[in-house]
Design a protein around this nucleic acid. Structure first.
Lengths: 154, 154
DNA sequence: TATTGTTATACTCTATAACTATA
DNA sequence: TATAGTTATAGAGTATAACAATA
């Protein structure tokens, strides 16, 4: 249920890879959280802003889906984004139940910064361009399609 | 500060790798959390149990260091582990300020399960043995030494 | 006086359930 | 009656500050 291969073996290659990925992602998250905090954003608020499309206002419900969380959670996150003047709620005239989320001008600027912070690759600086490309290809093979970026070019 | 290369570029190979690693680790964590919950453990409590050495009781302070968190947090986590009968607090006779954390017999068994769950590699099943080995080598190059397992063999 | 651990408290993140407004 | 969003509430996770016991 939890491991490929002999369950009495203390370590497998796959298990080691899993542990390293979890470790590496934790270290990446640490750097991200520090930089986001310097921007005055908590991690959850930053992620919410990042999932919004500045060029196509989104109903709150769709944001909940993108964040894979409960709509009541989105209410609180958008409360904070609105207090920071990064997002405005706007009633949809076509269906007055819907509240579309509009990214403000300052929201656009902050969102760009969030995007850069959440792609921070300083921990990969030790890899050559070739190694980076190989890593990307391997990760692409593992990806379940939920990752929105394009397939590897090299 | 946040990205290698041209900051106006919408995407870099390194940035893409970072995003995929964060995405993959999130999916892995999701599976782990489900399996840990089936064991009756929250993620933080499971991580605390995992950091304990069943063969060498550890002062609470050292566990805080391993978890990179405040000692007050360890108090609460160990409260829960003790209530589950997985860990016992024991006063160190040599220095009565120290509370060493002893893993119980049932704690040992649960800890083994936690270890397996937190090495769950089902998401890597699509990779060949060669690809897995390559991935491991690349992750080893990136690791900062904080990961306790041995270097790649292949 | 310094250190270990605990308590009290607070903030973030998230979910469930009950509610309101709209369809 | 069904859906979108909000409110109230609760629990997990974590931190800071004040405190007790021990060194």
């Amino acid at each position: 249920m939890a491991q490929t291969g002999d369950p009495t073996a203390p370590s497998t290659v796959a298990g080691d890879v899993v542990r390293r990925i979890m470790h590496l992602s934790g270290a990446m998250r640490h750097f991200m959280d520090v930089d986001l905090a310097a921007l005055g954003l908590t991690p959850a608020v930053a992620r919410a802003l990042r999932e919004l499309d500045p060029d196509q206002p989104l109903p709150a419900r769709d944001l909940a889906e993108r964040l894979d969380c409960d709509p009541s959670n989105v209410t609180l996150l958008v409360d904070k984004l609105e207090r920071l003047d990064l997002v405005r709620r706007q009633v949809d005239p076509a269906d007055r139940r819907l509240r579309t989320l509009v990214v403000t001008d300052s929201g656009r600027r902050v969102r760009d910064q969030v995007d850069r912070i959440m792609s921070d690759s300083r921990l990969l600086d030790g890899l050559t361009a070739d190694e980076l490309a190989t890593l990307r290809t391997l990760l692409w093979k593992v990806s379940d399609g939920g990752c929105p970026t394009e397939p590897p070019l090299t």
